[in-house]
Write a protein that binds this DNA or RNA. Structure first.
Lengths: 233, 233
DNA sequence: ACCGGTTGGTGACCTTATCACCGACAGGTG
DNA sequence: CACCTGTCGGTGATAAGGTCACCAACCGGT
């Protein structure tokens, strides 16, 4: 577990900034809608902040300007699995869910870096959904993408071997050839256990696919990993 | 595999019927929207029909009047897992996804009984979404519910033992104390393998929870199954 | 009575999850 | 420097679950 501080006072930047220019996602938006959003303040949220727990109810629709959020599902025994990461340009479905259907969160979201975000309050969000076709289609397609990606997670968990899932996790987290993650983090990302990751990485290392260091993995045969990741035998 | 006939000519009932009266889901709808839908024909679709394959693109939004559809995710080795059933009153997200986000289906939907349904073509669907707040909220909450239920499936697959998942599947499929499903069907419903179900049912039987017959399981200790289904040890 | 398809049972084997440890390392602090 | 302490990773044992191969019982035809 990373050390977390629970939702501390988020500081808001002086408004009037043209944050909306930064939000590439909103570039397709009509003038009216943008005006309706421009006065919302930008909120800074510290790394490690837990944005919501299971059972919380929705506060608003989040537009992420900077940073990365990860949404997890937690099992009864404490094991976790990454549902999806949220980065600028993609939205957080959990939030949307709550706003639209009245359901509570059932995942847990954590800021893995410092964040800058704009929170659209529920009423304004609903007004936009009613009034702006571009905004609607923005929200819809975000929704559809998430759904799709959650189905992929399900597909992987249900049908793929750890080998393939691990290979994929390594590839998706690599900066160059370096993956700066602990075994525990990798395990969480794919919904497995640390020991399993350790052993699997060891066999990867024996096959010359990676080398391991404390807190990191270095990829040495990216082509082979790609082949494994597809799950094709 | 049940014997299937691929999307045969669906027969449409003579229109002008007030099918919309039947659709309890739409009862909250405004007069205008209902008028905009009333002239759509009711389509009859035979049991076993495959409504869409992975990779198909969306044809329209389905309102189910009668019958039951099941949507599966299929793994590379042919193993399947039930994503969700669709019954009158609940909508098929896959379809909606396609209409809103342009993504193709990645599940497979099959009519497990004869169906009566109304298909709203894409254009009319989008027009309704734009013009009718009640319709929007109907679609949204359907969406949100599905999302929620898919997360539950994921949670179960990732974290619960077969024992618990099987117990739950039996309870949810029971008519009285009888579950009319083959081992294969149960396996598919929870994303496991037939052999595993056979063995697990055998131990259930030894514990006096069920008795098994060809093509069916009879529940003899529903309380114990309920306890197992929660996954609490 | 026979045949083919469906359903269910069984053993062997492999992968994965879980538990219970232990050692190795990094960053403080005295 | 030596010493703690928390994090990180390695290991063995055991049990659950998935996969494969195969067979027997059953059912609905003809």
């Amino acid at each position: 577990m990373p050390s977390t501080r629970s939702l501390t006072e988020p500081r808001t930047e002086p408004s009037g900034q043209l944050w909306i220019r930064e939000a590439a996602v909103l570039s397709g938006l009509d003038r009216e809608s943008r005006d309706a959003l421009a006065d919302l303040p930008v909120t800074a949220i510290g790394k490690g902040t837990i944005l919501f727990h299971p059972g919380d109810s929705a506060r608003g629709f989040i537009i992420l300007l900077d940073g990365r959020i990860e949404v997890f599902l937690t099992g009864p025994n404490g094991r976790e699995i990454l549902l999806y990461p949220v980065e600028p340009g993609s939205s957080c479905v959990q939030t949307t869910l709550g706003l639209l259907g009245g359901e509570d969160y059932s995942g847990e979201a954590i800021a893995v870096t410092d964040l800058r975000a704009v929170i659209i309050p529920k009423e304004r969000f609903l007004a936009l959904m009613a009034g702006s076709a571009p905004f609607r289609s923005f929200v819809f397609s975000a929704f559809a993408q998430r759904m799709q990606s959650m189905m992929q997670v399900l597909e992987r968990v249900a049908f793929l071997r750890i080998e393939a899932r691990l290979a994929e996790a390594l590839l998706s987290r690599a900066e160059g050839d370096l993956v700066r993650s602990t075994h525990q983090e990798l395990a969480t990302a794919i919904g497995s256990a640390r020991e399993v990751i350790s052993r699997r990485l060891e066999t990867f290392a024996r096959q010359g696919l990676v080398t391991t260091e404390r807190g990191a993995v270095r990829i040495t045969d990216i082509a082979a990993l790609r082949r494994l990741a597809t799950g094709v035998d």
